[in-house]
Amino acid sequence: MAQNPAPHPGRPLLAEDVLLVLFQPASGTIAGENTLFYVLAGAVLTELATQGHVTVGEPGLGGARVEAVQDDAPADPLLRQGWDYVATKPRSAQTFLAAVGPQLRGPVLDRLVERGDIRREKRKALGLFNSTVLTDGGGRRADLVEGVRAVLEDGAPPEPRTAAVAALVSASGSLPQLYKEIPWKSAVITRAKALEQGDWGADAAAEAVTRTTTAIAVNAVTTALVAANLAPPQS
Score class of each variant (00 low, 15 high):
G106V: 11
P107R: 00
V108A: 01
V108E: 02
L109M: 11
D110S: 10
R111T: 04
V113H: 00
V113W: 00
V113I: 11
E114T: 00
E114A: 08
R115T: 01
R115D: 06
G116Q: 06
D117A: 14
R119I: 02
R119V: 03
E121R: 12
E121M: 14
E121Q: 14
E121A: 12
K122Q: 14
K124C: 07
A125M: 13
A125Q: 13
L126S: 11
G127H: 11
L128Q: 09
L128T: 14
F129V: 15
S131F: 05
T132V: 15
T132I: 13
V133I: 15
T135R: 11
R140H: 10
A142P: 00
A142W: 05
D143M: 10
L144M: 10
V145I: 15
V145G: 03
E146C: 07
E146M: 08
G147V: 03
G147Y: 01
G147W: 03
V148S: 01
V148L: 10
V148T: 05
R149G: 07
R149C: 07
R149P: 03
A150D: 11
V151L: 11
L152M: 11
E153S: 09
E153T: 12
D154H: 09
D154G: 01
D154A: 11
G155V: 04
G155I: 10
A156T: 14
A156K: 11
A156P: 00
A156I: 05
P157L: 12
P158I: 07
P158G: 08
P158M: 02
E159G: 11
E159A: 15
P160A: 11
A163G: 15
A164W: 01
A164I: 01
A164F: 04
A167N: 09
L168G: 00
L168E: 06
L168Q: 04
S170M: 01
A171M: 08
Q177K: 14
L178W: 04
K180T: 05
E181L: 12
P183K: 08
K185A: 13
K185Q: 13
K185C: 12
S186C: 01
A187Q: 15
A187C: 07
A187E: 14
